[in-house]
């Protein structure tokens, strides 16, 4: 009758009905199973579950500078992170200590420009930078997006 070959093998009406019913019942079974298993609900009620949030270790939040127990950081103001950053997010403001050695004065981190790529962390030869797990970053204060990462000058 038709010149076009059917895209699927022809089935008898009985076969067709059996297949159709089977597939419909399978679908109903899947949704029915979901309904019967409320524990599997995937919704996370975010603001309520803030304390139970779990992050992957490699989650990339804003850059931070870890400090040890003595309050010291490992930055030498070499500037590799500043060079590695594609967005100009990091400004190394170096200074000189009493011995006239070049040390870190301030590491200014412009959060608003950061794309969280992590290249600065990879570039740092002293392991002085880390990506934190902070994520609630919204603010109406411009100053919140300009952070000084080091707590004190380098030595």
């Amino acid at each position: 009758m038709s010149q076009h070959a059917p895209a699927y093998p022809r089935r008898s009406l009985a076969r067709y009905l059996i297949d159709a019913t089977k597939s419909l019942v399978t679908g109903l079974g899947i949704t029915g199973r979901y309904l019967a298993h409320p524990k599997e609900v995937v919704t996370r009620e975010y603001p309520d579950n803030r304390t139970q949030l779990r992050f992957a270790e490699r989650f990339r939040g804003p850059v931070t500078m870890p400090h040890d127990e003595a309050g010291e950081h490992r930055c030498t103001a070499c500037g590799l992170c500043e060079k590695a950053c594609p967005n100009g997010t990091i400004s190394i403001l170096a200074t000189r200590n009493l011995a006239d050695k070049r040390v870190l004065g301030q590491l200014v981190y412009h959060l608003g420009q950061c794309s969280f790529c992590g290249l600065c962390v990879e570039a740092c030869p002293f392991d002085a930078l880390r990506m934190s797990h902070e994520f609630e970053l919204a603010s109406d204060q411009k100053a919140d997006f300009e952070r000084v990462l080091n707590h004190k000058e380098g030595r």
Binding site: T31, Y34, L35, P38, E40, V41, V42, T43, E45
Partner: peptide, 9 residues
């Protein structure tokens, strides 16, 4: 009901 069918709340 539809939320539960789709594993939502």
């Amino acid at each position: 009901v539809c939320a539960r069918f789709q594993l939502r709340l």
